[in-house]
Amino acid sequence: MTTSPPGSLLTAQGLRKTYGHTHALDGAEFPIHPGEVVAVMGPSGSGKSTLLHCLAGILPPDSGSITYNGREVTTMSDAQRSTLRRSEFGFVFQFGQLVPELTCAENVALPLRLNGTSRKEAERAALGWMERLEVDDLKDKRPGEVSGGQGQRVAVARALVTGPRVLFADEPTGALDSYNGERVMELLTDAARSTNAAVVLVTHETRVAAYSDREVVVRDGKSRDMERAI
């Protein structure tokens, strides 16, 4: 039986995940508290994306424990994990997350529609988030008609529209130039802090990681919490 650090919202302990002969995770640990922004850093292939996918309940680890809000995630059924992801978690990735056939506003409203929210209510909430991310003027445009930076802000609005308690961001600025990358990080972290959401931020860019409160370094599948290390 494992226990979570006091006050932590999401905790991983002793995570192991193997692909063939490769140990993607080899005993990784990770705690995050409400309202905290934690950068997950490490070289390519170190296991940081695998850690994010395990924490988010997308990928089951081979062994180890993941506790979200006092509940063990690894023993949940697929349906339970899917519900958890839809209702409690938000996701921002580097590329290709918006549905090209829908307008930007419809994209942002989509998670609410899937959760059964009425069209009118979902649109109202979507526009509110688009305003906060400064992309409300794009509401009727389709993703193919907006720039990379604008599209990424729409994706952040969509990730936050359900009021997630944890936002998972995997290289969210990886495809953007410095200016747009910084603007996305400013808006993303401001929005997350204002709702007390925790942010798990996977990045190899140190200027992006500088928007975090602390960093966890992953190397060879092992994690190192730098706040505790120093």
Partner: peptide, 15 residues
């Protein structure tokens, strides 16, 4: 790792 963390500390203050 320790040096990166020290640099990041300065970068957080500047950010």
């Amino acid at each position: 790792d320790t040096q990166r963390s020290e640099h990041l500390r300065s970068m957080r203050i500047l950010t």
